[in-house]
Amino acid sequence: LAFEFWKPSQCTEYIGNFLNGCTDVPAPMSSLPGCKMSSDCHSVECCTKINFMTGTRNIYTTYQLTQCDEMVTSIERQSWTKTGLDSLTGSTISEKVNGVFDMRMAVVESSSTLYKVTLSINICYLSGGTCSNLTLAEEVTLKKTDCLPERRRRKKRDALHGYGLDPSDLQGGFRNLYNDLASSEQVQQFLKEAKDYEVSVHMNEAQVIG
């Protein structure tokens, strides 16, 4: 994998209750240690220790509902946006990274307010020279964000033109984008700015060390 794929520093494994303050949905059937739900019940993030052939590393993954039926999936610095989740009930979404990672989300059930999904990741190039599938959260329930009429949503998006976010605060930026009903293009732009920021931080650290 390219150097740009990895975050400058490894994530820290989460220790605590999976629901993490989310009180509006039931606990999943199962969840992997190191995973947690956001307190607003809109996302799941995991920090998972993986034994690769080249050594051990913590891998950071996120699944976040950013709009009514839109999911942003990310692993380290790589991200994807998938819309139209309502039409994908009973299907599995798969995003691959160079034959090493395969992030999967099976949409088990959907309603006007909730999605029930199973989140997993298939990882290759492990220490034993094999691939392994890890179920991060089985049948976890995510709350949908508020669904506003398209006219109101577009007006809100237009008001965001030129809206500035702090690229060093990924979670806070996502929260602001959600609250302001940002478009998928604005989400992708913020992710790009966050990635550029991390690259600059890493380069500055390298210069200091050198």
Rank of each mutant, 00 (worst) to 15 (best):
W6F: 08
K7R: 15
P8T: 04
P8A: 04
S9G: 08
S9L: 11
Q10R: 09
Y14D: 00
Y14A: 00
Y14W: 05
I15A: 13
G16F: 08
N17S: 11
F18A: 03
P28M: 12
P28Q: 10
S30V: 15
G34P: 04
K36W: 11
K36H: 11
M37W: 00
M37F: 02
M37G: 00
S39F: 12
C41G: 01
C41N: 02
H42L: 05
E45H: 12
E45M: 15
C46D: 04
I50S: 07
N51G: 14
M53T: 14
T54Q: 13
T54D: 14
G55N: 02
R57W: 07
R57M: 10
N58C: 08
Y60Q: 08
T62W: 05
T62E: 12
Y63F: 08
Y63E: 15
Q64A: 12
L65G: 02
T66A: 06
Q67W: 11
C68I: 00
D69P: 00
V72S: 13
E76C: 00
Q78I: 07
W80R: 01
W80H: 01
T83C: 10
L85T: 00
S91T: 10
S91V: 11
T92C: 08
I93H: 01
I93W: 01
I93L: 03
S94V: 04
V100T: 11
F101C: 03
F101E: 00
M103Y: 14
M105H: 07
A106V: 01
V107K: 00
V107N: 01
E109Y: 08
E109N: 15
S111N: 06
S111G: 13
S112M: 14
K116L: 02
V117E: 01
V117I: 01
L119V: 06
S120L: 02
S120Y: 00
S127N: 15
N133Y: 11
L134K: 09
L134W: 13
T135P: 01
T135Y: 01
E138V: 08
E138D: 15
V140P: 01
L142H: 01
K144F: 07
T145M: 06
T145N: 11
T145S: 05
D146W: 09
L148N: 04
E150M: 09
K155F: 13
K155N: 14
K155P: 08
K156F: 06
R157S: 05
R157K: 11
H161L: 14
G162S: 03
L165A: 02
S168R: 09
S168I: 03
Q171T: 12
G172P: 03
G173P: 00
F174D: 10
F174K: 02
N176G: 07
Y178E: 15
L181I: 04
A182M: 03
S184E: 14
E185S: 14
Q189A: 12
Q189F: 06
A194L: 08
A194M: 11
V199S: 15
H202D: 13
E205F: 13
I209A: 15
